[in-house]
Design a protein around this nucleic acid. Structure first.
Lengths: 96, 96
DNA sequence: CCCGCTTATGCGCAAATGCGCATTAAGGAG
DNA sequence: CTCCTTAATGCGCATTTGCGCATAAGCGGG
């Protein structure tokens, strides 16, 4: 379980998705694709990994699929995500 | 950097090592091996991954190599480890 | 119905990961 | 020096992962 979460986060595109979804709102794949410089099939599969790890949920809205962070995520997992995002922010700053 | 840390943690034996080292003291490979049910070469390579991720440091002591959590680990990384260990503890309890 | 847009998926391939086995290396004891 | 213990590493192999390409599937509009 935790291992699934960690593997899901241990990939730049997927971590990028989590960072983008961390604003709490919904985003469709077609919006994430250009922001993360990923092709459609790549994005779709990465989203599947995040879904299976229980990190995101999806909702069909007409021809779009809207993703958001799983609102029922366990608090411990939420805490991991928080720590990871804070760490990556710090490191982006350091790199810039 | 964060990705390296996450991949390092996303493996059961390595996560087990971190959990064992979390007591703050030193442990030699020969002690970790039986506790994590790992062969010698497996352990050695996993320790290398943890070292390269900056999570542990090693020290030669006679014929042993003693490992401990990297005391110079960045606080953000430390925070990730803390969150991960707490989550895995909770989940072990749930599984038991 | 056909078309266009968005997303998912089957397939094959290349690269990465994890492992065991055997060997090497490093250190201490006799 | 040899022998023993502990740890690292070269090698080959099997599995997993990540990807592109093409195709299918879901939805709305005309």
């Amino acid at each position: 379980m935790i291992l699934t979460v960690l593997s899901a986060l241990a990939e730049p595109t997927r971590l990028g998705v989590i960072a983008l979804l961390a604003d709490g709102s919904e985003h469709c794949v077609c919006e994430l694709m250009p922001k993360l410089d990923a092709t459609q099939s790549r994005m779709s599969r990465h989203m599947q990994v995040l879904r299976q790890a229980g990190l995101v949920v999806d909702r069909r809205d007409a021809q779009w699929v809207r993703y958001r962070l799983n609102p029922d995520m366990a608090p411990e997992i939420r805490q991991i995500i928080k720590a990871v995002l804070e760490a990556s922010e710090k490191h982006e700053r350091a790199a810039a």
